[in-house]
Amino acid sequence: MRDDTLHEPDQALHVEDLTVSYGAAPALWDIDLDIPPGVMCAIVGPNGAGKSTLIKAALGLVRPVAGHVRFLGHEIGAMRGRIGYVPQRHSVDWDFPTTARDVVEMGLYRSLGWFRRPGRDARARAMAALAELGMQDYADRQISQLSGGQQQRVFLARALVQDAPILVLDEPLAGVDASTEAIIIDLLKRLRDSGRTVIVVHHDLTTVQSYFDWMVMLNVRIIAQGPVREVYTPENLRAAYGRQLAMIAVPEGGAA
């Protein structure tokens, strides 16, 4: 029994003809993209490739000049609250007067509805989300007193507490320590294994093959997309990164 109002309901994320422009030069050009449900997908590309812009446009934070986006067949407006979003850590002021648990509870504000304050139930769910990331002992810390990796884990806990089928993360591993990276990746893999779709803007090509099973290579246009073992090839990397490639590990002898 299918809902005919849905468009491409078999894709966790479906993007078609998406073009975004800041001023003269397009930041994203004619993006066609499909990410199936239940994968852990890396969005990679050089600096300025439009990785963050892509997810911001998908989430409706940036207005595209053309194209459309669907999550599980729905427009973004119908999927609010069912997508966990983790913005870049540096997008907020960490000196804001609030605690780690308070930030995590923000992930529940939408489900609470207008005028209602988070209560004991919200508190328990926030604590559980913090515990998933090993942060339960820091619940009452002021957020500026946390290390960068701990702040990132708090951000992830805020998305986790929504229990959403789709998670979208913007550079969650940028500037975090090795132990935080391991904790975050372990959690994301568990979420993937429980059927959720995890979409991650990722900057470290050396770890793409071990962390992810799906990838999108981007440089203003889509260079390649699909399972990592098919997409992570010297030709694609050269097409996406060009001269910057000397800095990057290239898989030996074509497809791995």
Partner: peptide, 14 residues
């Protein structure tokens, strides 16, 4: 509180 701390997240939440 949410808008003051993280307006992008608030917008993404609808």
């Amino acid at each position: 509180k949410l808008v003051s701390f993280d307006a992008d997240f608030a917008r993404a939440q609808g």
